[in-house]
C-alpha cells in the first residue's frame, strides 16, 4: 500500500529537484535576460517556461487519471517511468532546441523540456497510484490535480529563484560550480519512484 504522505512530499520534492536543474528552463531565461539586458525578460521567460512545465505535468494527469481505477495501469506507467529513467541513465541526450525563440514559443519549449527531463513520467505513476488507491472518482481526481499544480508551482518558484540568483547575485561563473549531473539525479529519481510504486502496488 502506498502512503499518502509519501505522494505529497515526493511531489513537492520533485518540484524542487526539477526546478533547480539549469536544463529545465531557468538557464534559458537567464540567457535571454543577458542577451536582451533585461530583468523583465528573465521574469517573463521563466514564467512562460514554468507554464509549459505545468502543461507537461498536467499531461501526466491525463496519462494516469482516466484508467486510474485499473491497478495494472499504475504498473504500466511506473514501468514506463522505470524504462525511461534507465534509458536516460545509459544514454544521456540533450537535443538542440534552438536559442532564437520568440516569446510565444517558450510555452512549448517548457512543455518539451518538462517531458524530456522526465517530469511527466515521474508524476504519472504517483498520481495513478493515488487514484487507484481511492478507486478513482471526482474527489480523487481533484486532489490529483492539486498535486500536479503544487508540483508545478514549486518547480516554477524554484526556477525563478535559481534564475534570479544567478542573474543578479552569483553571476554566470557560478554555473561552473552549481551545475551538477542532474541527468544522473533525475534518472535515479525516476527509477527509485517507479520501483517503489511498482513494489507497493503489487505487494499490497
Amino acid at each position: 500500500m502506498i502512503a499518502e504522505g509519501f505522494i505529497g512530499w515526493t511531489v513537492v520534492t520533485l518540484g524542487i529537484v526539477h526546478g533547480v536543474n539549469p536544463s529545465s528552463g531557468w538557464l534559458l531565461g537567464v540567457y535571454r535576460a543577458l542577451i536582451s539586458k533585461s530583468l523583465r525578460e528573465l521574469a517573463l521567460s521563466i514564467s512562460l517556461l514554468s507554464l509549459g512545465h505545468m502543461l507537461s505535468s498536467v499531461l501526466s494527469l491525463a496519462l494516469s487519471a482516466p484508467a486510474s481505477h485499473l491497478r495494472w495501469w499504475t504498473v504500466v506507467t511506473a514501468a514506463a517511468a522505470l524504462t525511461y529513467g534507465a534509458w536516460r541513465l545509459l544514454r544521456p541526450s540533450h537535443p538542440y532546441l534552438g536559442l532564437k525563440r520568440g516569446r510565444h514559443e517558450l510555452l512549448c519549449v517548457g512543455l518539451l523540456l518538462g517531458m524530456v527531463h522526465g517530469s511527466t513520467l515521474s508524476l504519472a505513476p504517483l498520481i495513478s497510484a493515488w487514484c487507484s488507491r481511492f478507486g478513482g472518482g471526482l474527489a480523487v481526481l481533484t486532489s490529483a490535480l492539486t498535486f500536479t499544480v503544487i508540483h508545478s508551482f514549486v518547480a516554477g518558484l524554484t526556477m525563478m529563484v535559481a534564475g534570479l540568483l544567478v542573474y543578479r547575485v552569483l553571476g554566470l561563473g557560478a554555473l561552473r560550480r552549481i551545475w551538477v549531473n542532474y541527468n544522473l539525479i533525475w534518472s535515479v529519481t525516476l527509477i527509485v519512484i517507479a520501483s517503489y510504486v511498482i513494489l507497493s502496488v503489487t505487494l499490497m
Binding site: L28, Y31, H94, L99, R176
Partner: peptide, 9 residues
Amino acid sequence: MLCPYGDPT
C-alpha cells in the same frame, strides 16, 4: 556545453 541545452558534465 554550458549553453542552456547542454550537458557540461
